[in-house]
């Protein structure tokens, strides 16, 4: 577990914050490699938004340190935030201004070139709607405009908090494609928080899962899948005999599932699946179906965060 020694775009060291008696973030250590799309996962109330607010200097953590682009945030907030773009929850847009005017607000405040407005409008595909008032934008367009705002000034790090909140499936797909191509096309590291596992699974190269304000897992998606291995689903003519054969060969965890004839075996890779098949056929059993399945990220997520919830109940 953990991210190896790569240059880091974002790092938190023992970051802690509490609201009164409620501990929102508890000694959080995050390491986000440069060039990655880092999915920051956790159930609602896990401490994701509090962490993001600390990353942007919106709240002062009670303890610990935030480092952005290799430097501590404390003491050089303005200089570092100039290199960071953010979209926290819903995009903050002025409905009485046009899309371009909304971008102009940030362009002027951050002292950016006016050409930045057209550049980011092109990136998110809103050039033709830039002259319309934002109050007439669909939710998806507003989200894309929020992303355009975050991209102004060519940030090296983009911090996105639940960017697909409230979007319909088409909007989610559109935004997901946009985010996925940003690191390669614009050289930006993306830190993306979400409670939607499927969303992160399709985009992230790295994931960090938190629960009760603490890191439960951090690493690549491959690392995460590697934690539980794969499962082999079989359909055989005589399942009881098949279980005996598998048990004798050392696959003790094999069990019958669902309909008659179906068996599930936990395996360590595809080669093992081939060995199971050969063993059953040699024993004279007819294998009608054989399928290797990886546990979904959602299942892993529930497994990790579920145990955190359980910890909480026990602690209470």
């Amino acid at each position: 577990m953990g991210v190896p020694d790569l240059p880091l775009a974002l790092e938190t060291i023992q970051l802690s914050h509490r609201f009164g008696p409620l501990v929102a973030v508890d000694r959080l250590d995050l390491r986000v490699p440069v060039g990655s799309i880092y999915g920051f996962l956790g159930p609602n109330g896990a401490g994701k938004t509090t962490t993001i607010r600390a990353l942007l200097g919106l709240i002062r953590p009670r303890a610990g340190e935030v480092r952005l682009l290799g430097q501590p945030l404390a003491g050089q907030r303005a200089a570092l935030l100039r290199r960071v773009g953010s979209l926290v929850e819903t995009p903050s847009l002025y409905p009485h201004l046009t899309g371009a005017e909304n971008l102009q607000v940030k362009q002027q405040l951050a002292g950016l070139s006016r050409t930045e407005i057209d550049r980011v409008l092109d990136v998110v595909g809103l050039r033709h709607d830039a002259g319309r008032l934002v109050r007439g934008y669909s939710l998806g367009m507003q989200q894309r405009l929020g992303l355009a705002k975050a991209l102004m000034g060519a940030p090296e790090l983009l911090i996105l908090d639940e960017p697909t909140n409230g979007l319909d499936p088409a909007g989610i797909h559109e935004l997901r494609e946009l985010i996925r191509r940003l690191p390669s096309e614009h050289g930006v590291t993306i830190f993306l928080s979400s409670h939607l596992l499927g969303e992160v699974e399709h985009m992230a190269t790295h994931v960090g899962i938190i629960g009760r304000g603490r890191v439960l897992f951090e690493g690549t998606l491959g690392d995460l899948h590697g934690r539980t291995g794969e499962r082999l689903l079989l359909e055989v003519d005589r399942p009881a005999a098949a279980l005996q054969v598998l048990g004798r060969a050392g696959w003790d965890g094999a069990e019958r599932v669902g309909e008659a004839g179906r068996i599930e075996v936990h395996i360590g890779g595809r080669e093992e699946a081939a060995r199971v098949n050969a063993l059953l056929v040699q024993a004279g059993l007819a294998v009608a179906e054989l399928r290797v399945e990886q546990p979904s990220l959602e299942a892993l997520f529930l497994q990790l965060t579920g145990s955190a919830q359980l910890d909480r109940q026990v602690a209470a």
Binding site: R53, L56, G57, L58, R77, A78, A79, L81, R82, V84, S86, V88, E89, T90, P91, S92, L93, Y94, P95, K106, L109, A110, K149
Partner: peptide, 18 residues
């Protein structure tokens, strides 16, 4: 209200402006 309504403060205060 222009800032409160659309929750702009978090966005404004995340800019490199004091």
């Amino acid at each position: 209200g222009m800032e409160h309504g659309q929750r702009h403060w978090k966005d404004l205060f995340a800019l490199p402006v004091p």
